[in-house]
Design a protein around this nucleic acid. Structure first.
Lengths: 83, 83
DNA sequence: CGGTTTTATGCTGAAAAAAGCATATTGTAG
DNA sequence: CTACAATATGCTTTTTTCAGCATAAAACCG
């Protein structure tokens, strides 16, 4: 299921979702991606200021890929962003 | 046209393409995004090690958005039968 | 060709993120 | 409720990225 990630929060939510779908803990994922659990936590909770390399490491560990597209008006807002 | 960016190089290429499509110079884009021309150059040439915030700044300036998708597993209905 | 714009490269110092460790908080079974 | 697992927070040190400036190397155009 494709997720639009226009913010760190949406990106974190997408990552968390993919991780839970695979039944992994943050510690497991961090180990796979060569990162630390604390960092995974920060990223998933949408805290600003992470490196692209960390995101790529998580994507690889979670079998995700990034697609760059022109913004279309048809925003499909994520539930998380309403609150 | 959507661009898959599994590496810094692909991401840089997608950004460069979007910039040229809008007829902007790196300096113009950097100004719009609140960055410097040198950094735009580094990102476009695919040098590793950039911050996610810089990418988001460029995306916003270029009207791009990031879509997170599963690499394998689930069937991707749109693309698979083309080749 | 020469001159101008654009893009790439190389420094330094300042700022920021990650590692590493400790620990608090929350979640979840039993 | 209790105990354990999972997640979030805080701190210091190390590592990395960015700004800022200079300049080299291309690309463009008369």
């Amino acid at each position: 299921m494709a997720h639009i990630a226009r913010s760190s929060r949406q990106l974190g939510a997408a990552i968390q979702r993919a991780r839970k779908q695979k039944g992994m803990s943050q510690t497991e994922l961090a180990g796979l991606a060569g990162l630390r659990q604390e960092l995974v936590s920060k990223i998933e909770t949408g805290q600003e200021g992470t490196r692209l390399s960390s995101i790529y490491a998580l994507f690889a560990a979670l079998d995700l890929e990034m697609v760059i597209d022109q913004r279309s008006g048809k925003s499909a807002p994520d539930i998380e962003d309403i609150f």
